[in-house]
Every structure is written in structure tokens, then in C-alpha cells.
Design a protein around this nucleic acid. Sequence first.
DNA 1: GTCTATAACACGATAGAC
DNA 2: GTCTATCGTGTTATAGAC
Lengths: 222, 222
Amino acid sequence: MTEEKAVKSEQTRALIVETALRLFRERGYEATTMRVIAKEAGVSVGNAYYYFASKEELIQAYFDELQEEHARACRDVLARERDFAPRLLGVLRARVDTMVPYHAFAGKFFKFAAEPTSPLNPFSADAGPSRAAAVAIYREVVDGSTLRIDGEFRRELPELLWIYSMGIVLYWVHDSSPGCAKTYLLVDRTVPLVDRMVSMSRLPGFKSVTRQLVGIIREVRD
Amino acid sequence: MTEEKAVKSEQTRALIVETALRLFRERGYEATTMRVIAKEAGVSVGNAYYYFASKEELIQAYFDELQEEHARACRDVLARERDFAPRLLGVLRARVDTMVPYHAFAGKFFKFAAEPTSPLNPFSADAGPSRAAAVAIYREVVDGSTLRIDGEFRRELPELLWIYSMGIVLYWVHDSSPGCAKTYLLVDRTVPLVDRMVSMSRLPGFKSVTRQLVGIIREVRD
DNA sequence: GTCTATAACACGATAGAC
DNA sequence: GTCTATCGTGTTATAGAC
């Protein structure tokens, strides 16, 4: 009984999300009203709001989907490559690959993700689990590689790489080049630079800068 | 005649902006409706829309105000200091100083600035003049200093510093520490690091990395 | 061109009945 | 869980006054 209800509930919920995401893709975020989502999904507006507290909350479902898709898209390269640079390159290219189909309306979503009070914001406390999942991929990039660097720095590097990836995303949102070619170019050009800088951190002259950096990160992190 | 009208027009416009910003501060952005702004300013809703195409557009006025205030707040330190690090430090601390009073509702504004299609977005083409004014301050930080670095790098450095300052702003928006103390800490800690890295760019071993960086910037910039 | 007054619209969101 | 009816909002439209 309760179980059947739970299943039905899950179905309705999924139906609403799928319909919403399809319509977002077809007509854009703003042109897709809650009334239309409800009508197309065959439910009432009130029912849609029973499952999702706001229109914005529907976007979370999209972000979760994207995150899973990225994790899947990274598996191959992370299983194959052992060197740091190609691992990072593969993960970042996969990130862009998964996002490209949504480029037209991603800007609208990005807006909500930028609001500090929104649970969609990747830096917010609410987004903790999502962020952890995202950072975990970069931890795997580091830990599964042959990279040899200072242990303290190694511990902070995944989060730094995640922030770097957020910078790539920021660039991507504004990239209007065909096929987002410029974003791929940015990735291809900056990964070797990042690789060089990370490798240099081991050199005697850089130990102090690296330690300084690690100290700052720990000091300003919440 | 025409002149008088122009003055009157400017006054009405200013009155609406001032009223709006005061109410935003007092009640927050969302709780301040266009109807209330109009009533408090003693104008009709239609008149408010005659001057500002949207509620969002009222925020542009705030950004412009902030930009001017920052430029003023930088004058002293830029006239006094000649070394690169203290110049940069002073400018960034001034940036935070001017923003702090608005911290409570800045997040709502930030959201609009994040949307790629919005003229409020600092990276957008529409924001070109505002961005140029902001970058100009960092150009003065560099040009007025005793810093000696490669000419090509020197030309790109102001824009890089502006992006760095955007990163500080991003951190600030999320900073809930009393008096935004953590943001000041971030500035105080990262400026010496940036200073060190910029200075190192001159060293023989770094010429190639620096050149690589300059090449990337020029390649991916629109 | 500047401004008022008021009504109307579409939207996100909510209330309350079933 | 689900519905219909309704609210408050940004925004637009209309019809004019100075």
C-alpha cells in the first residue's frame, strides 16, 4: 500500500521533471510556464508545486543529471590514462561535452546558481553533497595519477581544480563561438599550463609559495 | 526651456533611483515592489517605467554609483604608494570597503549580473564601458608602480587583475563573516602571493610560462 | 516630451476544498 | 495527492493632462 503510493509518487515526480526539462530545451526556461509544464505533464499546477517548491527547484534535477552524466563520461579516460595532464584534460573536455547541448538555455540556469541564497549555488552549504561529488572526480584525477607532489598540497589540489573547472564553466556560459570551440581551446591551452605549475610546486624554489598557498586556502575556507 | 526640462527630467530620474536604492537597503530587493518605489518617490508607476525599462535596470544605477565610489576611494593610495603590492592591496581593500554596506542585498543583484544575456553582466559586450572603467583602475595600479616586467605581460596584467578582483567579489558575496572579515583576510593573503608570482615572471625560468600565458589570453579573448 | 491614473495581463506561487 | 480558484508581482496598455 504505502509502497505502491511511494512508487506512484516517484512516477509523478519524474514525469514532471522530464516534461519540464524537455520544454526548457524546446522553448527555453522563461517561455516555459508552470501552467504549461503542468498541462503537458497532465497534472495540475498545484500538484507540480506539491513536488517542487518552485520553478527554480526543477533546475536542481537538471544539475544532478548533468553531474551523473559527467561522472559517466569520465570513466573511460580515468581508467585508461595515468598521467596527470591527460586525465585532467579528459575530465574537463567531458565536462564541456556534457554541457554543450544545453548551451542555449544554460545561461538562465547559471543565473540562479549565482545567487548566494540559492541551494543551486555550488558554493552554498546546501549544495554540499553536489559539490562533494564534483570535487571527488578531481580527487580521482589526482589520486589515480602518477603525479608526485607535496602531501599537503595534494590534499587541497582537487578543490583547486574544481574551482578551475568552475572558471571554465563561467567562460563556457559566455562562449558564443560555434560548437563552443573557444571553450575547448581554453581547456586545451590551460591544462598544460596548470600541469606545469603543479609540477613546478615540487621544485626547491617553490616549496614556500606552495606552502603559502595551502595556508591561505585553509585559512579562508569556511 | 529645453534646458529646464532636461534638468527636471534628470531630477525625476535621480529621485526614482535614490528612492529605489533606499528601499532596497531598507526592505531588500524583492520586497520592494515597483508600486511602492513609485509611491515613495511620488511618481506614477508609468513614469517609473518611462525612465527605467525594468526593475532590473535600476540596479545598473547602483553599479555605476559603486564604480565611481571605488575610483574615488582609490585616489589616495594610488597617489601615495609607488610599489605594486601596496597599490594593489589598497585598491582591493577599497573595493571591499565600498561594497560592504550593501552586503545584505548584494546577492540579489549579483544574480542578475551573472546572467550572460544581461547588460549588467560585467563580461558582456553591453557592459564594455563599465568594464573598461574598472580595468582602467588596475592599469593605473600597474602603470603607476615601479614594477618592472615584460612588456607584453604588462599589457595583459590589468585585465588579469580585474578578473582576480572579480574572484574576490565572488568570495565576498558568499562571505557571511562579521564585517566581511574573511574577505579582507583573503585580500591580505593573496595580494602578496600575486605580487610574488608577478615578480617571478621576470626570472629566466619563467619567461616561457609567462609568454605561454599571454598567448592563451590573446587567443581566447573575444 | 514628461507625467498621471487606472485597468489589465501573464506569471509564479499559495490556499483551501476534496 | 490532487484539484480549482485566487493572490501579488512585474510589466504593459490606454487615455489623457500639461
